[in-house]
Computed example of a mutant assay.
Amino acid sequence: MSFDLPRNVILPVDAIDVRLDPGPHPFARDNAEAIAENWQHEIAANPALFDGMVVLLSQLAYRDNRLAGRCHAVNYSTFMLWRKRRENSGAEHAYAHAMLVAADNALVAIRMGPHTVNAGRVYFAAGSFEPVDFRDGLVDVDFNMIREVREETGLDLSGAHRGKRYHAMSTNSGTVIFRRYHAAAPADEIAQRISAFVATETEPEIDGPVIIRHAADLPVGLSPHMKPLIEWHFANGS
């Protein structure tokens, strides 16, 4: 099987071996005309969209606390069509979350800006893997996490204490790889820093920070995959 991992369960991950295949993804190759047509509809509805490069998986498996897979660089327009045709597409999506844990053990997430594809959704600052996130063909998950948090919130997590291992949860909509990043400041102070950064941006990606203080503190607009991650954090200490 191209995708062989348990669904809807949080898995411990000690190693990630996801490699970038230089060849085209079969989904992109086989749907070129539909991709171009759909993209015209997408940008007509949201002119702020940019057809940059992301990656889509063609394989992913979980064995012995290890994730191994293969992915291919595709245009964002390909990703947008895949979102509508993901069932039996031969492609899946993986992304990473730096789970930002404040000094008071609260979680600090973000709400996406109104011009984005996921407008109003709440999750940890994140973005799809891009070719820049790979080193000698191997994905650098922490580089992606730190890069996305910096771009969206202005925070630099490069010196933050990191959780001992990664965890992952795979659903029909994608596989999230996450890791705790511990900040030295309390949640309110972190939120103030993020809000100050957003105020300086001409077209900020996010609407602002969202603080989650306990497992039942679920904000409006929370992405479905976030609830089990939040429950896991508050059930498993820090």
Rank of each mutant, 00 (worst) to 15 (best):
S170I: 10
H214G: 13
A184R: 07
D64E: 15
T171A: 13
L67T: 02
N8F: 10
I177A: 00
A44D: 14
S238F: 06
D142W: 05
A106D: 11
P228M: 06
A125F: 05
M53N: 14
R111G: 04
W82K: 01
D17C: 11
D21H: 11
V132C: 13
N118M: 13
E130T: 12
L107N: 01
S77K: 07
V122Q: 00
S128F: 09
M99V: 14
Q59C: 12
S158M: 10
L218Y: 07
V139R: 00
F178E: 00
A183P: 03
A196V: 05
D142S: 12
M53E: 15
I190E: 00
A215L: 11
I10W: 02
A185Q: 14
M1W: 06
P219W: 09
G163K: 03
R150P: 03
G237E: 01
R70W: 03
H25R: 07
I194F: 04
T116F: 06
E231G: 08
K227N: 12
E152L: 11
D133M: 01
G137A: 06
S195R: 05
H25M: 13
G120K: 02
M169S: 04
D207I: 06
I10Q: 02
R63H: 15
E130F: 03
Y181G: 01
D14L: 12
N46F: 11
G159Y: 10
R83T: 14
S170C: 14
A96K: 02
L20S: 04
N105M: 10
A168W: 03
I110S: 01
T175F: 04
